[in-house]
Computed example of a mutant assay.
Amino acid sequence: MLRDVRRLAARGLLPVVGALMALAACGEPPAPPSTSPPEPTGSSGAGASASAYAPGVVPVVPTTLPTGGVLPPGGVLPTGGVPPPYTPYTPPATTVPTPATTTPRTPGPPPAPKCTAGPSAAQVVAVVKGTPGIPNRELKVIDGPFCSGTWQIATIEIVARHAEQKYEPLFVVTTGAPSALQLIEAGTDVCSQQVQNDAPTGIRVRACGA
């Protein structure tokens, strides 16, 4: 061995041999420690799930749009990426109708008042008794007589007998002094032409309604 070393030294190859002997004595150099995380497994690209990354490493999702905007709540963008302008709600105008004005009704003439100086109920019944169309039955005055000037009007009825139905009232129009009454009309309708033309207004109102 010593002889071989001297031969190599004579040829100028001693430094190379020394280096080779040192490497043989030390063995294979240790590998450098791994400091980077293991590469992710599974599919690559933007569609990789969170399980493809190393434990404890979560990808950061950007909240800023490429145009510089910010994602709205819910992640839904309006058309064009710009929120529409806010338009305040304006309720429709309402028109209150003006109440129609009504013309006050002018009261008509008053009806004839009740008589204060006769005739009596008996005098009215006496003047109508025996008149054609008036039954020969007991009669009685149930309203009136009412007087206006020398005219009178009263309402009479036929007294119903036992189990009879009540009869329809009759009207009697007279004129003249209580002791000398003259019959003008008697019946269910006494608004005759003579009453309309000649009777005072109060009597006409009660006989004809106007």
Results as ranks from 00 to 15, higher is better:
104 P>G: 08
63 T>Q: 04
52 A>E: 01
62 P>R: 06
27 G>R: 05
95 T>E: 12
23 L>A: 11
80 G>L: 05
81 G>F: 02
66 P>Y: 06
79 T>P: 08
22 A>S: 13
96 V>F: 13
17 V>M: 12
93 A>E: 12
66 P>C: 09
38 P>G: 06
84 P>V: 05
104 P>N: 09
43 S>K: 13
44 S>G: 11
21 M>K: 12
86 Y>V: 15
100 A>M: 08
32 P>S: 08
86 Y>T: 15
26 C>R: 12
84 P>H: 05
68 G>Q: 01
103 T>K: 08
32 P>V: 06
60 V>Q: 07
92 P>S: 08
64 T>I: 12
98 T>C: 03
102 T>K: 06
49 S>P: 09
106 T>L: 15
91 P>W: 04
63 T>E: 03
16 V>E: 15
104 P>M: 09
69 G>E: 05
88 P>Q: 06
106 T>S: 14
49 S>H: 04
46 A>P: 15
62 P>L: 02
107 P>T: 13
29 P>G: 11
74 G>L: 05
87 T>P: 00
54 A>I: 00
102 T>A: 06
20 L>A: 12
39 E>R: 10
24 A>S: 09
51 S>W: 06
18 G>T: 09
32 P>W: 07
72 P>C: 07
103 T>A: 08
71 L>P: 01
62 P>D: 09
13 L>T: 12
92 P>V: 07
57 V>T: 12
55 P>T: 00
65 L>D: 02
79 T>G: 09
77 L>G: 00
103 T>L: 07
55 P>I: 00
95 T>N: 10
26 C>W: 08
46 A>S: 13
66 P>K: 07
35 T>A: 05
40 P>V: 00
105 R>E: 14
87 T>A: 10
91 P>E: 04
86 Y>E: 14
37 P>A: 02
55 P>Y: 03
104 P>Q: 10
22 A>L: 15
40 P>R: 01
63 T>N: 00
34 S>A: 13
19 A>C: 11
61 V>F: 01
28 E>T: 14
70 V>A: 11
79 T>Y: 06
22 A>G: 13
62 P>W: 00
24 A>Q: 07
33 P>Q: 01
79 T>W: 05
94 T>L: 15
50 A>K: 02
46 A>T: 12
23 L>T: 06
100 A>D: 11
33 P>I: 02
44 S>N: 07
36 S>N: 10
60 V>F: 02
96 V>H: 14
57 V>W: 04
81 G>N: 04
104 P>A: 14
61 V>T: 12
107 P>A: 15
53 Y>V: 00
78 P>G: 02
28 E>G: 08
80 G>I: 06
25 A>K: 04
70 V>E: 08
16 V>W: 13
90 T>H: 14
57 V>R: 07
28 E>R: 15
101 T>S: 15
33 P>F: 03
105 R>C: 10
30 P>F: 11
17 V>P: 02
101 T>M: 10
53 Y>A: 01
18 G>N: 09
19 A>L: 15
85 P>C: 11
83 P>S: 11
84 P>A: 09
105 R>M: 11
106 T>N: 12
16 V>D: 14
33 P>D: 01
19 A>P: 04
103 T>M: 05
60 V>K: 03
60 V>D: 08
70 V>F: 07
69 G>T: 02
59 P>D: 00
51 S>T: 14
57 V>G: 01
45 G>C: 03
20 L>M: 10
